[in-house]
């Protein structure tokens, strides 16, 4: 981690691989489906990446990682059970709230739709379905015949490309 804080990409990749190997059994014990383990593990790795500035390399690494892992696992379980509870909700009610949440973003989908269309076809379709049509990653995966993790990874890459283009 110390090397990765100094910008060593190889050390960082090795650290993330080792962390994923450590966390897989921890998640497998707590989650029912194999694909859920993959999804949550990816969320955790992304969270580790976002929060890496809060680790200084001077205290043990594992408590820090497991704190993030537990936090994301709880988040996942909470939304999983909330989804189940709200499964019977009228879709019309959701349609009323979804556009509001989308417009809370720094910019709307419409304002960057030109940039989205310039992305590779698959990534553009995923973003269009998620942000214009309002589908969840799971629904997009079913629609495009992909698995949910692949959709998330693809969306993550698309966001990265868009961010780089928009920052230019």
């Amino acid at each position: 981690m110390q090397c990765s804080l100094n910008g060593d990409a190889q050390a960082y990749a090795a650290l993330l691989k080792e962390t994923a190997r450590l966390l897989r059994p921890f998640l497998a014990k707590r989650l029912y489906h194999g694909n859920e383990v993959d999804d949550v593990l990816q969320e955790i790795l992304i969270s580790i990446h976002k929060a890496r500035h809060t680790y200084d390399g001077e205290r043990p690494y594992l408590p820090w990682v497991y704190a993030i892992a537990r936090f994301r696992l709880q988040d996942h379980l909470r939304s999983h059970y909330a989804d189940e509870l709200h499964g019977a909700e009228d879709i019309a009610e959701l349609e009323e709230t979804l556009p509001d949440e989308l417009t809370e973003a720094a910019f709307s989908y419409e304002s960057i739709s030109g940039e989205v269309e310039a992305l590779p076809e698959k990534q553009a379709s995923i973003l269009r379905l998620m942000h214009q049509e309002g589908y969840t990653a799971k629904e997009v995966a079913a629609k495009l015949g992909m698995n949910e993790s692949a959709v998330k990874v693809s969306a993550h890459r698309a966001y990265k490309i868009l961010r780089e283009r928009l920052e230019r």
């Binding site: 990409a9 960082y12 993330l16 691989k17 990816q42 993790s149 990874v153 990265k160």
Partner: peptide, 13 residues
């Protein structure tokens, strides 16, 4: 996917 994600995150470091 996991390998792809790790590769993509480590490129950003």
């Amino acid at each position: 996917n996991m390998d792809d994600l790790i590769a993509s995150l480590s490129k950003e470091v």
